[in-house]
Design a binder for these strands. Structure first.
Lengths: 343, 343
DNA sequence: CGACATTCTGAAAACGTTTCCAGAACGCAT
DNA sequence: ATGCGTTCTGGAAACGTTTTCAGAATGTCG
């Protein structure tokens, strides 16, 4: 190794090891002269402190782990991007691990994180997360912030801080809007009925029907595995049913694509024959003709908020800051929804 | 800390520290009995080795750095995802850092990587990368693999291994195809004229014109800052020019969106009035009506190949394996290109 | 001029691991 | 029994830091 250590710096400056360390880290008792000579020597030798050694001594690795099912999914990608930006500004590096929704991979990552002494963890667990993984995540003593998921039920002690999206409110607003247009048979395609976003959406969907006093038989729910599925087959099945739903709420990045293709194949024009409502974070929704009315929430804000919460915990210990943030979902009106066709 | 160290394991097993270490790491001389007692003790105590301490001793951190301009860009997200999968299977963790195309951030990341003794680095430098950053990246002695970028010119010694995409060939094929359909005025919108992908595409574009012996005046190049730009204004300007180009090659994730919107605003129908050709890695291209003919290359393969090259270097030292991979680009024919309108 | 508080400095311990080296135990032939 | 080679084991050094603690220098005041 050509690496220059703090020992070399001390030697070059003609002072002791410990003085050099103090001088560089701005310790309490360090004379101006000493500080000057040491920093000069460090500069000249191109000294870069070794974080590994420092971490070993201080117990803090300066790294944050991020556990998501798939970084390639734009949903997570934006979150990761925003979190990384904020965290690196604070001097941390971000370690990402894909779980591919595989409990084994997930747990392996949790163990790896723990072994590297990461200072904190952002996690959006998959559907099959077992308790062992949660324990491994918590074991290191590092603060954990949950991304748009429910915390494990059986946490005896302090509940886990989390950043949540108001999917329920969003779905309710969307459904209300369609009901207001006159729709009575609406289908909801959403990923992850076994996870928080899907569950909440379904709940909001039903709430809107209930509060309008409409026959709940018109509310068809069609859960998908992942937001990356093209729900093409399911969409076709829905459109072939009798009576056919007059509106589709397709809440997934690719589910919308599948739904639109299905509509085209069945020669249904949007919005005359079929109203379509989706999520707005994709180019497709904005550019499609007609432009797709959509629910939208701020992905960057999830990442940023989560990073912020984590940083606060790292500074103030478990005490500081709110432990739960709920981010709003907006309904962006565009051109893809209209009153149902008159039979 | 409630952490259990190897010292505790040794004590519990009634052996010495070094024996415990050897037993767990499968060292050379270790009796079956010893191995059994030690692993049993480790198991019982739930021992998790501390990678930090190990890294300090061995010099290998078990982590790979990845430096890209924006993980939220689907282009990079897929690459990162694939690389992470491969690397974690090999026992490494992936540290990602966004540069946001900011040389300062880029260099800060390079320094941080070096300080943490990362074992290897994947990097897609931005346009403004300065030599200092390259030196910082190389300084740690860790192998560096470049993602679809040119290596720095002034590397005296061994050239850097890189994974490249054949953008030139792709652009040439696309242009040839359009010329074959009869187009003579074609506009190319591509990001990053100052970086490899853009440069190569422009070169391929011109090559196709040259080899067809067509007046190069028909080849309009319209460079964009980033693939995430909506080139809406530029597209409008192109469509308003006289004579108007009869085909648009929009090689960016969002550039296509901007181009399509511009075409719609000018009441030009695709492909009758205007042929459009794009990149195929987005849902938009596949689902749009008409479906967009597009260039496509395998993003996952970039990440996987890069990871593979890196792993090989890590195993075999600088000697092993090829130092340059060129990945093909395919032209996927769909519905958005047709002969130019007859005037 | 001596005592003492104050600021600064250096030696050494610690973080948890791997690895070098010397020595112990053992078997086997002399 | 002694010598010797082989296999195993334990003590200790090392990795590069930070931090504790005691001691040195410096100044201040009686």
């Amino acid at each position: 190794m050509v690496e220059v250590t703090i020992r070399d710096v001390a030697q070059a400056a003609g002072v002791s090891l410990s003085s050099a360390s103090r001088a560089l880290n701005g310790g309490r008792h360090v004379s101006a002269r000493l500080a000057r000579t040491v920093t000069a020597a460090a500069e000249k030798l191109g000294y870069q402190p070794d974080f590994l050694a420092r971490s070993l001594r201080t117990g803090s690795s300066g790294m944050i782990g991020c556990l998501v099912s798939d970084v390639a999914n734009p949903l997570y990608a934006s979150i990761v991007q925003a979190a990384e930006t904020r965290l690196r500004d604070a001097g941390y590096l971000l370690v990402v691990a894909n779980t591919a929704n595989d409990p084994a991979r997930e747990q392996a990552a949790a163990v790896a994180f723990r072994g590297r002494r990461l200072d904190g963890i952002l996690v959006a667990p998959g559907s099959g997360t077992n308790d062992k993984t949660w324990r491994d995540l918590a074991a290191g003593g590092a603060p954990v912030v949950i991304l748009d998921r429910d915390a494990p039920d059986d946490d005896g002690e302090a509940s886990w801080p989390s950043v949540l999206v108001d999917h329920r409110g969003g779905a309710r607003a969307a459904t209300r809007y369609l009901i207001g247009l006159g729709h009575r048979r609406i289908a909801l395609l959403t990923p992850g009925a076994r996870m928080r976003p899907g569950r909440e959406r379904i709940a909001g969907f039903h709430e809107a029907f209930a509060e309008a006093g409409i026959d709940a038989a018109g509310a068809r729910v069609c859960p998908q595995e992942s937001s990356m599925d093209f729900a093409h087959g399911d969409a076709l099945a829905l459109l072939d049913a009798t009576p056919r739903p007059t509106a589709l709420i397709a809440l997934g990045t690719r589910i919308l694509a599948g739904a639109l293709r299905a509509a085209r194949e069945r020669r249904l024009s949007v919005p005359q024959d079929l109203s379509v409502l989706s999520v707005g974070d994709t180019d497709l929704a904005a550019v499609h003709a007609p432009a797709i009315t959509a629910l939208r929430w701020n992905l960057e804000e999830i990442g940023r908020t989560a990073a912020e919460m984590l940083l606060q915990r790292l500074r103030d210990g478990a005490g500081g800051g709110p432990s739960r943030a709920l981010l709003p979902v907006d309904l962006v009106l565009r051109e893809s929804c209209a009153p149902p066709p008159t039979p």
